[in-house]
Structures are given as structure tokens and as C-alpha cells.
Design a protein around this nucleic acid. Structure first.
Lengths: 192, 192
DNA sequence: ATTCTAGTATACCGTTTGGTATAGTCGCTG
DNA sequence: CAGCGACTATACCAAACGGTATACTAGAAT
């Protein structure tokens, strides 16, 4: 791992644990074992580092979800594949995923929220499109795609958040059977 | 409204919008129309202000939920009353409620999270006790009280969060019929 | 051998931060 | 009116902050 990657990894960890504004640049470079000019050489500013860190962590995750949506599957299968993509994203980089969740609920005028805003919106549109595409299967939607999309994302985040907390004590990975159950539970509330 | 109350109101608004560490004490006193010594007279430190603000906002909310749990009602009725208490808490002070949600997902070593930690835990135990009390109605729980409690709280927060975002555009209050629907939807996932 | 570029270290700067010492002001009580 | 406690304004401070000027090193290209 080169210095640039080291800086990003340490920054994500510190940003998640303590919050963006609570972390000093000095703290990051010490954790990464470099000096300030190195950080400013790569990222220009603290804000630039934040932007790059968010963007690079998001890309991998985003592509996985995109892939899960390809092909002409039915609604249940698509939701299950997407759910699996989310959970794989969490498994690949727990810290980055939990950081994203925390940023989504952060104050709307904070620097971190402004950085992830476009990604949150893209993610939302992505999921909403699933419900738009499979509108016939769901009967009269009455423009409820937004609510369904938010509900589905919220459910996934909540399950992952819960498992993360559980893991602090020990054990507890999310199995494939459980992914089926999550989607099933979600659809029960819709089909009625 | 006296100076002390003014400071708390302004602090909550700024803390939610920009984040605790991003807000300077100077900013708070300017918004409240007072000077720094006044703030330090009442709260001792920025951290003390944070603690008091969180605590006082939480108390009102907490008592409402506690009241909703009293009496020997069945599970469905209890959950509906609790859900109504949550939504009333949100209606009474939207900003404070949304702030709480954001703090729950904040980094575990941040100052704001450490302050609300005991309240989050109390809230969790409170809801879990409902499921423990009505265990017979739910068949074999296998120690799933924790998951149900987190699921229920997560569902409520998610609905409220969604409505808050919707409200930015206009309209959208949470009706009593909707509260019934939310609880109904939640139970569907459990009774199966 | 020399030049160029990417990257890194030392040492520093102006600004802002949380917090305070000092000096009052105001209303209440003796 | 004297004295007290609660409260507030002016002016200030040491420390920490984000960021930078300067100089150096190592490797590739000429």
C-alpha cells in the first residue's frame, strides 16, 4: 500500500470514528506515517481528501449494485441480487460502508453530507428505477416508487447496521438465506 | 424565552445543520444574541452545552413514550401507542428529533455520540421490554427481542426521516391511519 | 552527467478556536 | 442605601487549526 492509499484508509477510519470536523489533518498524517506536505500533494486540501475518499470508496460499491440490476429478471430476483450486492459492499469494507450510513443522516449543511449528496441521490434513483420497471407486478403504485425505494434502502441499512453492532460483541455474518428473508419481509408489506 | 433557552435552541439548530464540531461557540452566541461569558456561565463548556441540550430535549420525548407503555394493553395496541408517542415527539420539535436520529448513526467515538449513548440504550431497552412482556403472543422468540426492538425503532425513524425529507418540498403529515399501517406492516414480518 | 518530475521533510504562518480575567449591571434582600 | 448573587459585556489568551514556502531526495529520461 502506497502513501496515497495509506492516507485514504486512515482518513476513512478517523472520519468515521470521530467525525470529519473533529479530525485534525495532523492526526491523519501521523496515523498514516507521513507528513502534511505529502497529504497536500495528493489531495490539495482536507476537503479534497474527503471528496476523494468518499468517491473512491463509493465507486466499487456502485458498480456492484449496477451489475446486480442487469438482465431482465423479475422483481423478487432483482431485489435479492441488489440486496446481496449491498451486503457484499458491506463485507468488503465494513468501515467505509458504516461511514456512508452515518453520512447519509448527517446535517444537510455539513461538508461530508454535501460530498455524498450526489451519490445518495444516484443510489436512490437506482433503486426507484427497479420499482418503476416492475410497476405492473405491484398493481396500483400511485407514485409510491419513492416510498418503496427509501423503504428498501432503509431496511438494508438497518439490517447491516444491526449486524455491525452485534459483531462488536462477536459472531454474526449475514447468510444468503437471511437475504431472502429480508427481501421477503419487505415485499410482504407491499403486496398487501 | 430567556437567554439560556435561546442558547439551547440555537445550538440544537446549528449542531444539527452543520455538526457539533463544525459549529464555533462564537457562532452560537451570535445566533442567540448573547456573548460568550453568558454561554459559559450557564453551561461551563461547549461540551456542557451539548450535554444539557441533548438531555433536556430527550426528557420530554422519553416521558411520552413511558406514558404510552403504561397499562396492560395487548402488543398491537402498545406498539401503536408507542409509535404515536414517537411521532408526537417528532411533531413537537422536528429539529431536535432529526438531530437525535443523526446522532444515533454518528461515529462511536465522537463527542455527540458519547452523550446520547445512554439515551439510545435506554430507548432500546424500553422497546425491547415490550416484546419481552408480550412474548407468549409471538410464539418462539428465540431471543429475538433485540432484533424486533431494533427493527421497530428503525422502522419508525425511517418513516419519520422520509416524511421530513418530503416536507422540504411541501405537505405530508403523518396521520393516525398511517400509524396503524406502519405497525401493521411491522407485525406482518414477525407473525410469519 | 544532467535535467526533470514526483514525492517527502523541516519549519513556519495567519487565523480561528474554546475558554477566561476583569469589570461591571441589574434586581432583590437586609 | 448597602450588600449580595445572578447575569452579561469588553477584551484578551494560549493552543490548535488548515495550509504553505523552501529545500531536499530518488528515479527516469535525455
Amino acid at each position: 500500500m502506497n502513501n496515497r492509499e495509506k492516507i485514504i484508509e486512515c482518513a476513512v477510519e478517523l472520519f468515521y470514528r470521530k467525525g470529519y470536523d473533529a479530525v485534525a489533518v495532523q492526526e491523519i498524517v501521523e496515523a498514516a506515517g507521513v507528513t502534511k506536505p505529502t497529504l497536500y500533494h495528493y489531495f490539495g486540501s482536507k476537503y479534497g481528501l474527503l471528496t476523494q475518499a468518499v468517491y473512491e470508496k463509493y465507486q466499487i460499491f456502485h458498480q456492484d449494485v449496477e451489475a446486480a440490476m442487469e438482465g431482465s429478471k423479475d422483481l423478487v430476483q432483482t431485489l435479492q441480487d441488489v440486496a446481496r450486492a449491498y451486503i457484499n459492499g458491506y463485507r468488503r469494507d465494513e468501515q467505509a460502508y458504516m461511514w456512508f450510513i452515518s453520512l447519509m443522516y448527517a446535517g444537510k449543511e455539513s461538508a461530508p453530507y454535501e460530498v455524498i449528496r450526489p451519490m445518495v441521490q444516484e443510489q436512490f434513483r437506482q433503486i426507484r428505477d427497479i420499482f418503476l420497471k416492475h410497476g405492473k407486478q405491484l398493481g396500483n403504485m400511485r407514485g409510491r416508487q419513492d416510498q418503496y425505494a427509501l423503504g428498501f434502502i432503509g431496511l438494508l441499512h438497518h439490517y447491516i447496521y444491526y449486524r455491525y453492532l452485534e459483531k462488536q460483541d462477536g459472531s454474526g455474518d449475514i447468510s444468503d438465506g437471511e437475504i431472502y428473508e429480508i427481501v421477503h419481509q419487505f415485499l410482504y408489506g407491499i403486496y398487501v
